[in-house]
């Protein structure tokens, strides 16, 4: 593209990241429906702008913690698609050698301290990483992604209190998709909302439309700036509806009529695509070519994963240091 000004370039990058997440998740949904992926998968379709926008506001040496719905976060932080997909297949070339699965993808070199199968668990871990960065005086920042369901865990309150008490460089990003598992927000969270809880701990907090990747980026960039200026921590609440169920196979009978249609009207990927065209930041041929590139990346990731065999049990025992004895 000819327009190399920072804003258009950021918008195009965010578009590609979102599209990568969307196609990855759609592919996972299809493979899961075909019975080719074991276990549980939790997809983030509809929430791509949160992952893309937030991670674009970080440096490569910053770190994130993620959630059970974490594929998007890992992709946005630079995770390798093939190793992610291989992990979902249970292959030895997966990020966790097939020992963790969808909910445990981690890549320390890229600052991904781990997705997590336990709601809220990444909050104290990111807080601890931020403590290390403060003690080391490195200027690095930690960012914890978590859902609106996590804000009623003790880990949320214990983590935020510690971080605020010690002015730690940590950004808390609450992805509010309106549901804690299968239960709507009004049935699980009291009070005026998540941002108000952060304000109660004395930290900077803001709310943002989580289907607008640029808006998410800007809000998280302000929060990161706070942290680098030693004025952290900070919290961002990004509202973005979930298109799929809590897990693949969830029939979503609990969702009111019309809600999913409304969610699709707020499609974060399509929305940014329209914006790129309307602002003249990209043209149709660019959109077509990046779509083809992303689809080729995903196809290569699936092919990589299909070739990856699971570990032998003996190799697993060796890796766990347990070969001698149980």
């Amino acid at each position: 593209m000819s327009d190399h000004a920072p804003r258009p370039r950021l918008a195009r990058d965010l578009y590609v990241t979102q599209l990568r997440i969307r196609r990855f998740e759609e592919t996972v949904a299809r493979l899961f429906a075909q019975g080719r992926l074991p276990g549980f998968v939790h997809l983030s379709i509809g929430q791509e702008a949160v992952a893309a926008g937030a991670c674009a506001a970080l440096r490569d040496d910053d770190v994130i913690t993620s959630t059970h719905r974490g594929h998007g976060h890992c992709i946005a932080k630079g995770g390798h698609l093939g190793r992610m997909m291989a992990e979902l297949f249970g292959g030895r070339d997966g990020y966790c050698a097939g020992l963790g699965g969808s909910m445990h993808i981690a890549d320390l070199e890229r600052g991904i301290l781990g997705a997590n199968g336990i709601v809220g668990a990444g909050i104290p871990i990111a807080t601890g990483a931020a403590y290390a960065f403060q003690a080391q005086g490195t200027g690095r920042v930690a960012l914890a992604f978590f859902g609106d369901g996590a804000v009623n865990e003790g880990a949320f309150h214990e983590g935020l209190n510690l971080a605020a008490l010690w002015h730690l460089p940590v950004v808390y990003v609450c992805e509010d998709n309106g549901y804690a598992e299968l239960t709507a927000t009004d049935l699980h969270t009291a009070g005026p909302g998540v941002a108000a809880r952060a304000v109660a701990y004395g930290m900077h907090a803001e709310e943002v439309d989580g289907t607008d990747a640029l808006a998410v980026h800007d809000a998280v960039a302000r929060a990161v700036e706070c942290c680098r200026a030693k004025e952290g921590p900070a919290l961002v609440v990004a509202h973005a509806p979930r298109w799929h169920g809590h897990f693949e196979g969830d029939p979503q009978r609990y969702r009111p009529m019309g809600e999913l249609e409304e969610a699709r009207r707020r499609d974060p990927v399509g929305r940014l695509g329209h914006r790129l065209l309307a602002e003249g930041w990209a043209d149709e041929s660019w959109l077509t070519s990046v779509t083809a590139e992303v689809e080729a990346e995903i196809a290569a990731a699936v092919a990589f994963a299909e070739r990856s065999l699971p570990l032998e049990l003996e190799a697993m025992l060796h890796l766990a240091g347990a070969e001698a004895s149980w």
């Binding site: 301290l113 104290p124 403590y131 003690a135 080391q136």
Partner: peptide
């Protein structure tokens, strides 16, 4: 949890 995160980050 703070200890886990700090350990992952090099302490």
């Amino acid at each position: 949890g703070l200890g886990v995160g700090a350990a992952l980050a090099g302490l």
